[in-house]
Amino acid sequence: MKNGLTLFLGVFATLALSWAGVLLTAQRQFGGLAQYKDPADESLNPAALSGIADQGRMVYQDLGCVSCHTQQVRREGFGADIGRGWGTRQSVARDYLREKTVLIGQARLGPDLRNAAARPYADAEYFYNLLYAPQSVAPGTNMPSYDFLFDVRPASDQPSPHALRLTGRFAPAPGTQIVPSRRADELVAYLLSLKDTYDYPEARPFVEPKQKEGGH
């Protein structure tokens, strides 16, 4: 190859074709995907995130939760995602229209969170406790504590209704109470919004149309 021009054109074409062939084609195919209107009750799915949950998404982003948690459920028969109760169906592209930044993740040092709020034990108290003292609700986990999202306040005659109810070795020091900060509230609101339950036509299994009844 003596000719610099040939090299330049080849180098140019390589990435231009890749960009057009992968990204632009995908954008054309599903970049314009819209919410699905339910034929029965005319609701739009997925519903948009509430304001506080959307702020929680930014807390999720700034704390780097994606370093350990994926948000994608693989289809039945491809891994044990559904068997583990991480979802009742595979995640599809339309599910992600609700988030402004889509962090599907690529490491499962912790469990998948795409349907974190759909688990039977998952309520606000569970997530607050998990964030403050992970061992208190998930013994054996190596998740770090996010105690900096909580304020330690002196216990008064009228304790805060939001104060965490922790017992045993996780209980706050005598005379103090643990109250979630605004960011903790936002993050928990986001976690509580993680629930892809709507059954889109494209999410139904192609070969086996048999309905799955929940996790194990």
Binding site: S18, L23, Q27, G31, L33, R94, Y96, V102, I104
Partner: peptide, 17 residues
């Protein structure tokens, strides 16, 4: 920004590149 599941695709394209 592109929307929805295109974002992970752009990200994967970049990381791979």
């Amino acid at each position: 920004p592109v929307r929805g599941a295109l974002q992970p695709l752009v990200n994967a394209w970049y990381v791979n590149g």
